[in-house]
Design a binder for these strands. Structure first.
Lengths: 240, 240
DNA sequence: CGGAGGCTTGATAGACTTCAAGGGTCGTGG
DNA sequence: CCACGACCCTTGAAGTCTATCAAGCCTCCG
C-alpha cells in the first residue's frame, strides 16, 4: 500500500541535509497571492491558513496547516501562488529551497513517488470536504471540521486530556465552512448545549469524540446497498 | 516549469505498450464505492462522474471526467475507492493495469514526477472550486462550471462553432454545484434570458465566452491591493 | 403508443445572512 | 495598576436565497 506519510519520510532526508529554521509572527504571510515561493516549509509549531479573498471582501479558507504539515507542495507546479498563506499564530518551520526539491523530484523515484502519494491523499481528503460543503448543513460542517482538526492534532501528539490548542476565531471557522460568523456562533452555542464540544480561550475539548463524529457525521451510502436507502424526490435520484 | 500534462505524456508510453480498450454503457460503474480498481482508465470518448451518495438520498458529484482525462490516479493510494465513478454516456477508454502503473511509479522518476505534477494541478483546480462552492451564489457557480466544461472540451478539440456536447442533466448540475434541481432550472432560465448561454438537446452553446467568464466570474483580489477593496463588515475582515 | 425521465412553474417553508448594537477579553501604553 | 482600544463573541430582528412540495408538460426511446 502507498501510505499517507510517504512524502514526509522522503522529505525528512532533505530536511536534515539542507533545511534551515525560519519563524513567522502572527499575521505574517508565508506566501502572498501572486507571489513566488522559493521555499517549501515543514511546520514545527503553530498554525497557518491558505485563503482567497474576493473583490467584495468575502473570504474563503481552503486549508489549515498544523504542525507536521508541509506548506505547500503545490507551489512546485505554479509559477505564482494561487492563494495566500498566512500565519494564524507564531510559526516555527523548517524551510527547504524549492530548487532542491525540484531537483530531487526529477532524479529520485522514491522521492517523486512520495510527493505523488501525498498529493493524491490530499486530493482525497479535499474531495470529502467538497461533499460536505456542497450537501451538508451547518452543524455537520462544523462538527466535521472540528473532528478533523482534533484528530490531526492528536496524530501529531498535540493533545492532552482530550484537549488541544485551537487558535481559530469564529470568523476563521465561517470562512472555511462557507457560513457567516454569526451563524457559526449560534451553531456552536447549540453544540455546546448538547455537549458535543467545549470551546473557550483558544482551547478545544471534545467530551465524546465518537458522539461528535456520529451525530454530526459522515454516513455515506455504499452503492451496493442503494436499495435499502429511503429515497426522496428530487436530488435523491440514483444515477444507476 | 512543471506543466500540466506531464502525466499524460508520461502515461502515453504505458498506454502504447500495454493499454487495452474497454467500453462502458451509460450508467455502468467504472468503479463502485468500496470496490477495488484494478485498472486506471484514459477516457477516449464519453463522460463520467465521480460521486458520493448519502443515507438520506442526497448526492454530491465531485468530478466530471471528459475525453482525455485519466480516471483515476487516486485509486493508486486507497485500498478501496472512496467514491463511485459512473458513465454518464457510453464510454470508450484505454485501461492500464494498476500493477503496471504502481511498478512504473516506483522505478521511473519522470513518470512519478508526472503523476505528482498531475495530482498537484488537480488539487489546485479543486481548491478553486471549493472557494466557489463555499462563497459564491448560484448563478456564479453554474457559470463557472459551464465555462470550465466548455474550455476543457475545447482543449480536447471537441467544440464546433462555439458548441459542444453537454450530456449533463439539471440534476447533475445541481449535484455538482450543491443546489437543488429546481433552482438550477430557474437559474439557467435567467442565464438564457440574458443570453449568457444556450442549453438544449444535450448541447451547449456560449455566445460570448468572455462575457460569461466575467459577468458570473472570478475576480479574486490580490493581497497586495487589499486596501483598494470595498470592505464589508463580518466576513470582510482581512487576516493581516 | 406508452412510459419513464427530465424540464418547468407556482406556492410555501426553512436555513442562513445581514444589519445593528452591546459586552467581554486581552494586550499595550501611560 | 488602570485605562484604552482592538478584536472577538453574543443576541435580536428583518430579509434573502434556496429548498421543498406538488403538479403538469415535454421529449425521447423502445
Amino acid at each position: 500500500m502507498l501510505t499517507q506519510d510517504h512524502s514526509l519520510q522522503a522529505m525528512s532526508g532533505l530536511i536534515r541535509e539542507s533545511g534551515n529554521e525560519v519563524r513567522f509572527k502572527r499575521h505574517d504571510y508565508l506566501v502572498r497571492r501572486g507571489g513566488r515561493a522559493d521555499s517549501i516549509f515543514l511546520l514545527q509549531d503553530g498554525w497557518a491558513a491558505r485563503y482567497s479573498r474576493m473583490a467584495d471582501g468575502r473570504q474563503h479558507i481552503s486549508h489549515f496547516y498544523l504542525p507536521g504539515d508541509l506548506c505547500d507542495l503545490s507551489w512546485l507546479v505554479a509559477a505564482q501562488a494561487s492563494q495566500a498563506v498566512i500565519a494564524l499564530t507564531p510559526v516555527r518551520a523548517v524551510a527547504i529551497t524549492r530548487d532542491l526539491v525540484e531537483q530531487r523530484l526529477g532524479s529520485d523515484p522514491a522521492f517523486a513517488q512520495g510527493v505523488a502519494v501525498d498529493a493524491l491523499w490530499r486530493l482525497e481528503a479535499q474531495t470529502a470536504w467538497m461533499v460536505t460543503l456542497g450537501r451538508r448543513p451547518a452543524a455537520e460542517r462544523l462538527a466535521q471540521l472540528v473532528c478533523e482538526l482534533y484528530l490531526r492534532s492528536e496524530q501529531r501528539g498535540k493533545t492532552v486530556d482530550g484537549e488541544c490548542a485551537f487558535p481559530l476565531s469564529q470568523q476563521h471557522l465561517a470562512d472555511y465552512t462557507g457560513m457567516s460568523a454569526v451563524h457559526v456562533c449560534r451553531t456552536l452555542r447549540w453544540m455546546r448545549g448538547v455537549e458535543l464540544l467545549e470551546l473557550r480561550r483558544r482551547r478545544l475539548r471534545i467530551p465524546d469524540l465518537a458522539l461528535l463524529a456520529s451525530t454530526c457525521g459522515y454516513p455515506i451510502v455504499d452503492d451496493m446497498k442503494t436499495e435499502s436507502a429511503e429515497p426522496r424526490t428530487g436530488s435523491s435520484r440514483v444515477y444507476a
